[in-house]
Design a protein around this nucleic acid. Sequence first.
DNA 1: TTGCCGCCATGACCAGGATCAAAAATTTCG
DNA 2: CGAAATTTTTGATCCTGGTCATGGCGGCAA
Lengths: 248, 248
Amino acid sequence: MAKIIRMKNHPASAPALPSLRAVPLRLSSNGQAVPLLDEAERETLAGIATLARFPRGARLEAEGERAVQIYNIIEGVVKTYRLSEDGAAYILAFLFPGDLVGLYENGRYVNSAEAVTAVVAHRLPIEALEQVLQRDPALNAHFLSKACHDLRAAQRHTILLAHHDARTRVLLFLDLIADHASEITGSRRIVALPMPRTDIADYLALSPEAVSRTLHALEHEGVLRFISPRVIEFDRRDDLPSIHRQSG
Amino acid sequence: MAKIIRMKNHPASAPALPSLRAVPLRLSSNGQAVPLLDEAERETLAGIATLARFPRGARLEAEGERAVQIYNIIEGVVKTYRLSEDGAAYILAFLFPGDLVGLYENGRYVNSAEAVTAVVAHRLPIEALEQVLQRDPALNAHFLSKACHDLRAAQRHTILLAHHDARTRVLLFLDLIADHASEITGSRRIVALPMPRTDIADYLALSPEAVSRTLHALEHEGVLRFISPRVIEFDRRDDLPSIHRQSG
DNA sequence: TTGCCGCCATGACCAGGATCAAAAATTTCG
DNA sequence: CGAAATTTTTGATCCTGGTCATGGCGGCAA
């Protein structure tokens, strides 16, 4: 038992099998994101996967590069982004364990991806993956489910940025992070933000100043409390736009 | 020959087979959107499809409804949107021939969809479609390609709305429409806008007033010329942010 | 300890587009 | 054809969040 806990704290010692998290297309019990793959499917993917580790800040791929592999995150947080002409970054998504990194078209990656924290991931060579998917229709269907899940997430992100003000964007961002990386201590929820203000700003299409101001305005409102700049106490809110329940 | 032209103007007389348009994942010659399906695959889908016609303004589906079918557009334009608490509409995409309508999760449609023009589409029952995809891995792979294509389009839409000003948004919108519905008359490109200003506004996250103002500012710049409020002469521009080349 | 450097916070000012109000143009329909 | 309804346009004002500038905090190395 102590050993299991130790493994959880040190995932290096026993990497988990590949896993896809998403809300299923078909009617399921609760409509939450769940692991899609069964043991056999995870073993199948493990058969073509090699383990990759990235330190914080490492780039997994760059837009325009020839796409040779995709990654399945086991541990850590990855950001995907595009660079504009003037060097500004547009962060498209933060990805968590159970997500896939490496969207490509015409044989080339569409986005860049960088490790926000230390990351452990399975490297899936595209060549081998496509062969496996050809042979296993059920597995193929799961990848389709995952793509649809990410499409819905992108649509929610669009609505969030395009139609909501800074306060709502920041609240929903905190919600997103709290879903994936929060500890419940008594009745309080402690959320650790793994990325700097600039990343939050690039994801929410705000200036870093606006993110800072908004966070502090929320503290004055009593919605949250700072423990340190990267750690806040935050009680999840029910009064957020329903459009955005569920995210990935 | 005259008959063929007549058929093109009156698609009612000879509906085309189902078709999926997207940029392929694999390296392809030009990196443009192309029809993904071969004749056999189109016939396979036709085997489970029934033809559906919708007048302008008809609703194809509503968010939250039980998902029983998806549509493959043959002719016309469809908008997909979400409704906010206060009744405002967030238009997520305009869909054209070769596109799929009917994204669902947990057995229910995620978005609403409405015909912007008169629409002809193949109705594909989900039940039958999933069976067909199980039996035909290549077809399944094409649906995955299409989902990835739509995901990339959603990401471009996010960047467009979140990081570009009104002028750029309107220009790129005109580009989008010109891709799908323009006639080249001599050296001028005539673009017919099939939707009202409010729809353009809801898609670009602007007010209808801002859309109108921006269009007229572009006319004063000499970038376009109004023939009527819904018909403009517009020469495609090369100086737009490269992020947005290609759309669906 | 001290100084450097990256990250974060705060203040002052400005601008793009929203909002409110109302007129003009176009389409629909009797 | 003419009138109503809808769509589009224009004008005036306001406000959110961007930008620029400055200052504080904390970690790290010497």
